[in-house]
Amino acid sequence: MGRVSGRSCIVTGAAQGIGRAIGEALLDEGADVCFADINAAKVAEVVRDTQAGRNGRAIACGVDVTDRTQVSEMIAKTVAAFGKLDVKFNNAGVNKPMNFLDVTEENWRMIMDINGLGVMIGMQEAAKQMIAQGTGGKIINTASIASRQGYDNVAPYCASKWAVVSLTQSGARDLAKHDITVTGFAPGVVATEMWEDVDRDLMAIGAAERPGQAMEEFAAGILKGRVAKPADITGTTTFLASADSDYMTGQIVMIDGGMTLV
C-alpha cells in the first residue's frame, strides 16, 4: 500500500514539468489525482499517457487558476470523481524574464496574478471544500529559490514566490483550527520545459549569449553539482501529501541541491 493510498488530490500546472511529475508520483503511491492545467488538451493527453499501470485513478481538468469559478468547478469535478478532496497542490506558475529597469506593469500583473492570486484562490477554494467535509486536509504550495533571494532579471517572479511563502504561513495560521495543514516546497534549478522557456527569454533580453548558459551559471552554485530533475522533487512532495507530514505546517522545504542555505 502506498503512502497516499485512497487520498484524493489535485495538482495544478500538471501538463508538464514538476506538476506532471508530482501527479505521477502520487498515482504510483495509490492516490487518485486530478491533473489540472490551463492547457486542457495537453493535460488530457498527460492523463491518457500516464493512467495505465498506475495504482491510482486520474482525471484531467482544464483550469485558469486566476478564475475563482473555474477553480471551484475543478474542485467539484474532483469530488464528483473521487468522493472528496484531501490534498491540493497549488503548483501552476509562470515566469517571463525582463531586465529590472524594463519590467512593465503588464509583466508584473501577469506573473503576480498567476503565481500569487492563483495560489490564494486555490488555497481558499480547497479549504472551503475541506472544511465542508470536516476531515481536514493538506494544501501544498510551490515556492522557489526565488522566494528566498532576489534575482535581477526576474524581479516579479521573485516577488510572486515571496508572496507564496507569506500565503503559506498565513494559511497555516488560519486553517489549523480546521485540521488543515499548509506547507510548501522551493525547487532550485530544475530541467523542465519552463526553464527552456526562461533560457530563451534571457537570451532575448541580452542576459545570456547562448542556449544553456543561464542554467550552467546557476548550476555552478549548487552543492550537489548538478541541476535537478523533476524526479528529485517528488520524494518531498509525496511526503508532504502523506500522513508522514501531519505535524508539519507553515513551512517551506528547500529542494535545491544546496544552492540556497537558509
Score class of each variant (00 low, 15 high):
C9L: 05
V11G: 12
T12A: 03
A14S: 10
A14I: 02
A21W: 00
D28K: 06
G30H: 03
D32F: 00
V33N: 02
V43T: 01
T50F: 05
Q51Y: 04
A52P: 01
A52S: 04
R54S: 11
R54A: 11
V65E: 06
V65R: 06
V71I: 12
V71G: 02
S72P: 04
S72W: 07
I75Y: 13
G83Q: 05
D86L: 07
F89Y: 12
F89R: 09
P97K: 07
N99D: 13
L101T: 10
D102C: 05
N107L: 03
N107H: 03
N107V: 06
M112D: 07
I114K: 01
G116W: 00
G118T: 02
I121L: 04
G122M: 05
A127E: 01
A127H: 05
K128F: 04
K128E: 10
G134P: 11
G136V: 09
G137N: 14
G137R: 07
I140L: 04
I140G: 02
N141I: 11
N141R: 12
T142H: 14
Q149Y: 11
P156L: 12
P156R: 14
A159M: 14
W162V: 14
T168V: 12
T168E: 02
Q169F: 00
Q169A: 11
R173P: 02
A176I: 03
D179Q: 10
T181V: 12
G184W: 03
V189G: 12
A191G: 08
T192D: 13
E193C: 12
F218C: 07
F218G: 14
A220F: 01
G221A: 01
G225W: 07
G225I: 03
D232Y: 00
L240F: 01
L240D: 06
D244T: 06
Y247P: 10
G250S: 03
Q251W: 01
Q251P: 03
M259W: 15
V262C: 08
